[in-house]
Design a protein around this nucleic acid. Structure first.
Ligand SMILES: [Zn+2]
Ligand SMILES: [Zn+2]
Ligand SMILES: [Zn+2]
Ligand SMILES: [Zn+2]
Lengths: 134, 134
DNA sequence: ACCGTGTTTGACAATCATTCTCATCTGAGT
DNA sequence: ACTCAGATGAGAATGATTGTCAAACACGGT
């Protein structure tokens, strides 16, 4: 993940947000807004598509979910186990995701940035591969 | 940069591709297809938008240009100085870009993947910051 | 220089994820 | 119950990217 923790505004609790949060809590793959929307539909918790987008954005801004982009540009979301900064190793076949930490990489990124005189540095680091079940 | 070197098919030389290649050779920031298209226009080398997209894709597939996505999902392209695998430190204000290498990071990525039994691993690693002129 | 053929191009339509609009609904405090 | 700012949803709008397909082109052979 990459964004500096823009602080969470006070968001009002709603049925829709709860349903979305619950769904995400049960899910471990990265899913798109559209995917999540239709899963909510089929499960009975009807939520408007725009609302799904809005809440995912809010959750992402609050750091409650991680976001990344698939190769074809779609945003995919996932509720990660840890709150700590981390990255992901994602199976491009089945979506299975492992959360990884890399202190060494974090240091490297910061160092490279400093060496070049850049400030406010953020980074995007994600790994994609094929997991054992293929 | 993330894709395994899918080998270049034989592409036929055209005025359009030449113009695009030349423009990219003179440019050092990452630019979108749309940007490149309008730059070509104003410079007199008129090239269809679809053609710009097609050629950028081809060039990217051949590894002649690097691609990455801005935060708002647009693809941006840049003709890098080196052919070697590398990553980028991009100023989010002015687009100034520094090419960086990170043997340590490459090793880390490979190691993490192996440790988790993933194969065919690729990675996305980009750094964003604000450069000295801001 | 002249064809024949497979590529490439370009104008325009079509996709499709995401965002916007705005009228309606809801949560929380009074 | 009353109020009102925040939240929702149906549908329209946006905008980058891709698809279509006829016309233009590169190039090897003649
Ligand atoms: Zn898998
Ligand atoms: Zn990190
Ligand atoms: Zn690398
Ligand atoms: Zn700058």
């Amino acid at each position: 993940m990459t964004s500096p923790p823009t602080e969470s505004a006070s968001r009002r609790p709603t049925r829709q947000r709860a349903a979305l949060a619950e769904l995400m809590a049960e899910t471990s793959e990265f899913l798109s807004a559209q995917d999540l929307h239709s899963k909510l539909q089929s499960r009975g918790d009807s939520v408007g598509l725009a609302t799904v987008y809005r809440n995912l954005q809010a959750m992402a801004a609050d750091g409650d979910v991680d976001v990344l982009r698939t190769d074809d540009g779609e945003c995919v979301y996932r509720s990660c186990a840890t709150d700590a900064h981390h990255h992901h190793l994602v199976c491009r076949e089945c979506g299975r995701t492992v959360e990884v930490e890399g202190p060494a990489v974090e240091k490297w990124a910061a160092e490279v940035a400093r060496a070049n005189g850049f400030s406010d540095v953020t980074h995007t680091i994600e790994l994609f591969g094929t997991c054992t079940s293929h």
